[in-house]
């Protein structure tokens, strides 16, 4: 009997403790002085695919910066695993909190759609970023860059590094990866049109299965099997550091130009020692920044369907295609700027 009352007491105490420590945490990332501003402060919920990884931590930096510039409250939160179910339930909470806009990077385009439609019905602006949802479930999609611009930037970097008549290979993740296959298609299209003398030594790309050790192995084999090789694209964030490791071991960086897509943190050591001169990726800080700008503009009615341009703070004038706002060309990382990025 006393045991049970004790139990009751402890449970209640735990709960009260939980409740009272909740609000004591300041609402994430708002500018404290904004209270004095006229009118109601907008609340924007920004949700990555998951929290706690470098890429999305970098988007958070951008999102918070935009929130400060625009004087809006940014709540940046997401699931601890990349699960769409958790995202859906969290968005339900944001609807209950009556946020003015929700900017989400959905883990699955169709499973996220019902709750986003519900949010829109309640008068909340919905933006997707990083990945899209079904188009009818959101107002705008902030697209980091089109596949064509990824392909073009990669090809241009290769030509600058290895010349317009170089012989090259492509290292991909798995042969069925949708993103990579589209990029390779676009690369081939752009090559045929802009650099007809550039030669792909193997029409089938070399697969390294999102496995860094395997990428090192595959790259080492390619260096032996293709003596005339002058350039290599490694187009996943796992393949590029793996390939760089092989190139460094072989000491072949002066005859083979390696580039591709990866995050600066993973590539820093290879750029510092000169194995990789430069590589390409969209800038996640800018992506988070633009997501918040787009959400706020949509709430304030500053960007309507059918617009062709959009002014996003320090990013300047950006292109709008249909209901997609395009961040622009990917960023090229090299010795001069790699230290500015922490992702």
């Amino acid at each position: 009997m006393t045991n049970k009352s004790m139990a009751c007491l402890i449970l209640t105490a735990l709960v009260i403790a939980g409740v009272s420590c909740g609000p004591s945490e300041p609402p994430a990332g708002d500018a404290q002085d904004a209270q004095s501003e006229a009118g109601k402060k907008l609340k924007i919920g920004v949700m990555p695919k998951l929290i706690g990884i470098d890429f999305f931590n970098a988007t958070e930096v951008g999102a918070r910066k935009a929130g400060e510039e625009l004087g809006v409250e940014v709540d940046f939160d997401g699931p601890v695993e990349s699960k769409v179910d958790l995202q859906v339930e969290m968005i339900e909470t944001w609807i209950a909190k009556k946020y003015d806009a929700i900017a989400v990077a959905p883990n699955a385009p169709d499973a996220i759609a019902p709750v986003l439609k519900k949010a829109r019905k309640r008068g909340i602006s919905v933006i997707t970023w990083d990945a899209d949802a079904l188009p009818e479930a959101r107002d705008f999609f902030v697209n980091q860059c089109t596949s064509a611009s990824v392909a073009k930037t990669l090809m241009d970097v290769m030509v600058e590094g290895a010349g317009a008549d170089a012989k090259y290979l492509i290292l991909t993740g798995s042969l069925t990866a949708a993103n990579q296959n589209i990029w390779m298609e676009e690369m081939e299209k752009y090559r045929a049109q802009a650099y007809p003398n550039l030669t792909n030594l193997s029409k089938t790309p070399k697969a390294s299965g999102e496995d860094q050790a395997l990428a090192t192995q595959v790259m080492a084999d390619c260096l032996k099997a293709y003596p005339g090789l002058q350039g290599v694209f490694a187009i996943t964030s796992v393949a590029l550091p793996g390939a760089a490791e092989a190139l460094r071991k072989a000491g072949a960086a002066d005859r083979v130009f390696l580039t591709g897509l990866a995050t600066p943190k993973m590539m820093k050591e290879y750029v510092d020692d000169g194995t990789v001169d430069r590589f390409v990726l969209w800038n996640p800080v800018d992506l988070g920044y633009l997501a918040v700008y787009a959400a706020v503009a949509n709430v304030r009615g500053e960007v309507e369907p059918g617009a062709t341009a959009f002014n996003a703070g320090h990013l300047g004038e950006l292109k709008v295609v249909g209901s997609e706002i395009i961040l622009g060309d990917p960023t090229i990382f090299d010795k001069s700027n790699i230290d500015q990025f922490d992702f």
Binding site: L11, L14, V19, P23, E25
Partner: peptide, 28 residues
Amino acid sequence: RYGLKMAGMRSQHVVIIVGALLIVTAVL
């Protein structure tokens, strides 16, 4: 879970509180 989220607690902390609740009730 819902209440803590509404109170503005971040996901990582909600997971911890729910875990603590489980341990306490299991022991009790």
